[in-house]
Each structure stands twice: as C-alpha cells, then as structure tokens.
Design a protein around this nucleic acid. Structure first.
Length: 149
DNA sequence: GCCAACGTTGGC
DNA sequence: GCCAACGTTGGC
C-alpha cells in the first residue's frame, strides 16, 4: 500500500469531474518518471491526493484511490489526437495509465498551507523546481494531511 | 504575461 | 557522450 499525489488542471479535469464520473483513466502522462510510478509501483487500493494545479487556487482538492493496474495508454496510438506518439506501437507501447476512482472531495488545502507545515518540509511536491505530475507521498505526510481536512 | 526549473531532442 | 536549443510546467 502506497500513497501518491496526482496533479490535474481543474480546467481539464477537476475533483468535481471525478465525483461525477466515479473513476477515470489517467491518460496523457508523457513523462518517464511519472509513467514508471504508474507502471511499476502503483497497486490497486493505493491512496491518492488529488491536486489542482495551474489554477487560481492550487492545492489538494480531494481523495481518490488507484482502481486498476497500469495498462497501455490508448491515446498514444491515436494519430489524430494530441497525445499521439509515432514511436509507440501496440507490440511495444511506450506510455501507460492506471485508472483512479473517486473517494471524496475535501476542503481545499492551498499550496501555501502545505508549504507552511513543518511536517511536510520534505514532501516531493514542495521541492524546488518540482514539476512531476505524479509523486510518491510518505505515509507520515499522508497521515498528517488526513488530519488537516 | 513572466520566469525559473526541468526534460527532451538532435547535431557533433 | 556532451551540450545548446527548445518546449513544457506551474506558481505568481
């Protein structure tokens, strides 16, 4: 059982969209580190902090959980889509995604509040220059955040 | 819109 | 393998 933080731009897909849909395929990740977390480490039932990025109020907006193991991301094969990868083949797919399911919406914990918490000083998402859209969360960090909702 | 930080690409 | 150029991310 691991814990993760997954970023999404709410203008693209928000916690409210996930509440409506119940679950969603996390397609479109085109970063190798983030891909490897999904493909190699995620297990069904892992906890997910759903983070809103690139918006007026960036921060943690809800809870989700990993609903499936990773499988090849279908969008890499769609030549007319923006996630098309000409180097990917069905025999040798390059990109993978898990599916994530809704747990609950929480109060929004703003980025500034995360930064202010000494308990979260080493959190990956807060590291300088961090841009990864999927990052592991330590159990201690997860437990601390659960108490902030 | 700005800019720092980072990842990827491609020439050599 | 190096590294400059470029594109992207994401907070402010």
């Amino acid at each position: 059982m691991r814990y993760w933080l997954m970023k999404s731009e709410p203008s693209e897909y928000s916690i409210d969209d996930l509440a409506r849909d119940g679950s969603v395929a996390w397609f479109g990740v085109r970063n190798y580190q983030a891909r490897n977390f999904m493909r190699d480490q995620m297990q069904v039932g892992d906890g997910v902090l759903f983070y809103h990025s690139t918006c007026a109020e960036p921060g943690i907006a809800g809870l989700a959980e990993v609903a499936t193991l990773a499988y090849p991301d279908a969008t890499q094969f769609d030549a007319s889509g923006k996630y098309f990868d000409p180097k990917a083949t069905t025999d040798s797919p390059r990109w993978f995604n898990v599916e994530v399911k809704f747990v609950r919406k929480t109060r929004l914990i703003p980025l500034a509040e995360l930064r202010d918490a000494p308990e979260l000083a080493t959190m990956r998402i807060l590291a300088k220059g961090n841009r990864l859209s999927i990052t592991p969360v330590d159990p201690d960090e997860w437990n601390f955040i659960q108490r902030q909702f």
